[in-house]
């Protein structure tokens, strides 16, 4: 007599996407791509919510400007720029290698685009906070 042995199914929870233990830089880029995409979608709804205040007429304008200039929103603006640059530039890298351009240098491209993200984000943050002084 033989008994059937049922294997334990593989863990297929989406949380596995974010398990970076033992992974290399490519998975970090993969995780950043997903988090920045979710963040950008959330920001879009937040943005539309705040903009909808203007539908109340000119009287709502001052309140809108006050919210837009609040430190929390300014910090969120910087986070938005970081997210846009990280997602956009990595997306450009993925498009290029997907078209067969620069495949052997995909890691170098990642580091260059990461450096660009940091540099442009820092410049943007300086510009945003300098303007509010």
């Amino acid at each position: 007599m033989s008994a059937e042995v049922k294997p334990k199914p593989a863990d297929r929870s989406p949380g596995q996407w974010f398990d970076v233990r033992g992974r290399r830089v490519g998975l970090w880029a993969y995780v950043v791509m997903r988090l920045s995409a979710a963040g950008l979608v959330l920001y879009l709804f937040l943005h539309l919510g705040i903009l909808s205040q203007l539908a109340q007429g000119p009287a709502a304008w001052d309140g809108f400007v006050a919210i837009a200039k609040s430190p929390v929103i300014l910090v969120l603006d910087v986070v938005l720029i970081v997210g846009m640059l990280a997602h956009g530039l990595n997306g450009l890298r993925l498009t290029l290698i997907g078209l067969g351009i620069g495949i052997p240098r995909h890691k170098t491209m990642l580091w260059v685009f990461l450096a660009l993200t940091v540099l442009l984000s820092a410049l943007s943050a300086l510009a945003i906070f300098a303007e509010t002084k």
Partner: peptide
């Protein structure tokens, strides 16, 4: 494929 290159590594 989302091009993470973990396979290559």
């Amino acid at each position: 494929c989302h091009s993470s290159f973990e396979c290559t590594e």
